[in-house]
Design a protein around this nucleic acid. Structure first.
Lengths: 288, 288
DNA sequence: CTAATAGTGTCTGTTAGACACTATCTA
DNA sequence: TAGATAGTGTCTAACAGACACTATTAG
């Protein structure tokens, strides 16, 4: 009988659970953040919300909030995103990192798990962001490596909202120190706005993940419409990397993941063939 | 003046923070788990502790515990590891994943962040694990891909403690489903013990990370003494991958990361040259 | 000498980068 | 025709896998 199994205190599992008091100790607050990105007109964009309260009043932040007791972490981030933006079923989402420094939030001890969330641009059409009245807006985002040696990488992470004439620019430095990588950052002087708290850390990591997994795992296609031209894919890829790639080589490689739909499109110049993504050849190595 | 900035409620930041009540809502409990691994005698090993209380009484678990209010997440996992095993300064550690399903712990709502922690075998010498009296022990661990197609990967995750004649074997199936990877698992019949709760998920991910980053980032060397022979490195690498690799090719590639120390070692047969790891050439791409 | 361990050389097919080229459409 | 966009072909250097080979030690 399962009930006859007892622990060192002579309790059955039921007795043990009944006596368990989760509030014996104080708990940290648990929150989640959503790094939401899309590609519009060949530009990679991130959704940011201007904070209307302390802390970081006036700074720009990713949507996010507290995790309720009765919802999974994954559900919480999607609920928060829906509440703050109206976005319903993102094409893709994956966990990025959990931040747990004691003093990272002045309100109280907060442990935050951040997610990368992607959707194609048409999914964002009905979202609140972009209204003149809204406190949310899309920022063009770019991460470029400025200098790379074997022990150090210096990159710039730049977010720009043309409509509001806002620039948020960070320098990110990764240095190999013994067995670890030490990351430091600073807000560049040309910025006229900034990110709330340690949000730059999540966004920086999101860019790394995006750039690294873009083609191999096919997550690039979560940023695009179902039927696309090769040029559109290349534009999205270049937006993501922040630099142009060779057309011939890119086509040679990307075609392995595509099936022609038979349809064509004509804007100007020569007609272009349309393709759709074949998920069967997407590489199965998310779990790194 | 900073004090003159007020929010929509007319509060200054100080007033806002003074009025902030973190306990307005109930909070989940936050815990951390340590997946501690080493390489001993050419075999990859993981430290597991047999649970002495509910839940999962008698099952094997990673060391871990609650995060205190006044310690960083990174500190918490190292403290727990020290308390439960006596290990002080691990050679390497990195965050793996945060698990947040509502019902994953029968005691209460628990959100757990898991870490991969590596140390060379000599660092484990003074640890409690391995005593006959101890509830902790080292298990040989292996993850092998059994079958791999473009849309599915089937692997076996096997932990074995010879001394106690314990086998814990899982089958892990990763399937590409639309844009996600769905992972399922089952305890194989030849097991005579099992892992607590969802700990197999962390251990599975740890093996993926280890196998993927082993050579490129040089984390392999955190499992080895400072001075090593090429054969020792290859043994560790093979232990980690779970299958042999070509000696010539491995040496050709690994030498790029090494500097000869000038010393030699002789056990049987031909003398072997000793090398040390050159961290300057370790690849700088942890952040994926 | 043999057994055991350490270490090298070379061939081959695949891939990544560079870059020059051709094709089809409108006006 | 020019201008614009779409798409192809080819060369080369680097790399990964397979595998046969040589070198040094003890006894």
């Amino acid at each position: 009988m399962k009930d006859s199994i007892r622990n060192a205190q002579g309790q059955t599992e039921e007795e043990f659970l009944a006596a368990y008091d989760p509030n014996r100790y104080e708990h940290p607050s648990c929150t989640c953040d959503a790094c939401l990105m899309t590609v519009r007109d060949g530009r990679l964009q991130i959704l940011l919300i201007q904070r209307g309260n302390f802390p970081w009043l006036g700074d720009w932040a990713m949507p996010g909030g507290f995790v309720n007791m009765d919802e999974d972490l994954d559900e919480a981030v999607q609920r928060e995103l829906y509440e703050e933006t109206g976005l319903k079923r993102p094409a893709y989402f994956t966990q990025l990192y959990t931040f747990g420094k004691v003093d990272r939030d002045p309100r109280t001890r907060v442990i935050t798990t951040s997610y990368l969330i992607l959707c194609p641009p048409q999914q964002t059409a009905k979202m609140k962001a972009g209204d003149d009245a809204a406190d949310a807006d899309w920022f063009d985002i770019r991460k470029e490596t400025v200098k790379r040696t074997e022990k150090e990488r210096i990159a710039q992470l730049v977010m720009r909202c043309e409509k509001r004439d806002l620039t948020i620019a960070y320098e990110i430095r990764d240095r190999a120190k013994d067995n670890y990588i030490v990351t430091t950052s600073r807000l560049l002087k040309r910025s006229n706005a900034r990110l709330a708290g340690d949000h730059y850390k999540t966004i920086n990591k999101a860019m790394d993940v995006l750039q690294h997994r873009a083609v191999r795992t096919g997550i690039l296609f979560n940023l695009l419409p179902r039927e696309v031209t090769l040029r559109q894919i290349q534009d999205a890829y270049e937006a993501l990397l922040g630099h142009p790639v060779d057309t011939g080589n890119f086509r040679r490689d990307i075609k392995k993941m595509l099936v022609p739909t038979g349809h064509t499109r004509l804007v100007r110049g020569r007609q272009s063939a349309l393709y759709s993504f074949n998920p069967l050849v997407a590489y199965l190595e998310e779990n790194l």
